[in-house]
């Protein structure tokens, strides 16, 4: 496939010239040993204390980019208080990027997208699960892994439409009566979120 070509070429070039200190961030390291340079310098300077661990030691290593496009996309949807989806294999996800809806299929090019409040849908065969995200980031890696980071994510069927309407009108009122910049910005955020919620419920 074409998406593999630059990686292949670059890999050749870099191997000949210098060792990459860090491989391409989209091209995840398949094994995560500790940073040997750090461990060596630590042991030289402070021999009596063990070097501290790094977070990657606690992480399940991500798979390397396969040569053929896999049939499934691995999705992680994480929140500060929960991991809603953890390494779930799905067919497609649609994320509410700030530049518009973005569908992510297996083998998508590596992308980082900012998310706006909106619907995040997970397609799994004929099943479609919809979540409302309050905004965040989506990292799509070349190895068909997508990480979605959000502050809040709620299944759409748990949202009460009446409360959304009420909140929307409340914040619209606040926006019109806001005097300071801070109040205005707060009200604007409220209006944005509630209209996104409203659109998600009606649309």
């Amino acid at each position: 496939m074409l998406r593999q070509t630059p990686r292949f070429l670059l890999g050749r070039a870099s191997a000949a010239a210098t060792r990459w200190i860090r491989p391409f961030s989209t091209d995840l390291p398949s094994e995560t040993g500790g940073d040997s340079k750090f461990i060596d310098s630590w042991k030289k300077t402070i021999p009596n204390i063990d070097p501290p661990k790094t977070p990657s030691a606690y992480m399940k290593p991500r798979p390397p980019t396969p040569s053929t496009i896999p049939s499934k996309l691995t999705v992680n949807l994480v929140l500060p208080y929960d991991s809603v989806l953890s390494a779930k294999e799905v067919d497609m996800v649609i994320v509410p990027a700030s530049t518009g809806q973005m569908g992510v299929l297996p083998g998508h090019v590596a992308t980082i997208a900012e998310l706006k409040p909106g619907i995040f849908s997970v397609h799994e065969g004929n099943d479609v699960t919809k979540y409302f995200l309050s905004g965040g980031f989506a990292f799509v890696h070349a190895n068909s892994v997508a990480d979605i980071i959000a502050i809040e994510a709620i299944p759409v069927d748990r949202i009460d439409p009446n409360l959304v309407q009420k909140g929307l009108s409340e914040f619209q009122q606040k926006l019109s009566s806001a005097s300071t910049d801070v109040e205005k910005a707060e009200a604007q955020i409220g209006v944005d979120v509630h209209s996104a919620l409203n659109a998600a419920l009606t649309g």
Partner: peptide, 9 residues
């Protein structure tokens, strides 16, 4: 789960 995307990236 929250920090893993950042460490992976």
């Amino acid at each position: 789960g929250l920090w893993q995307p950042f460490t992976a990236l």
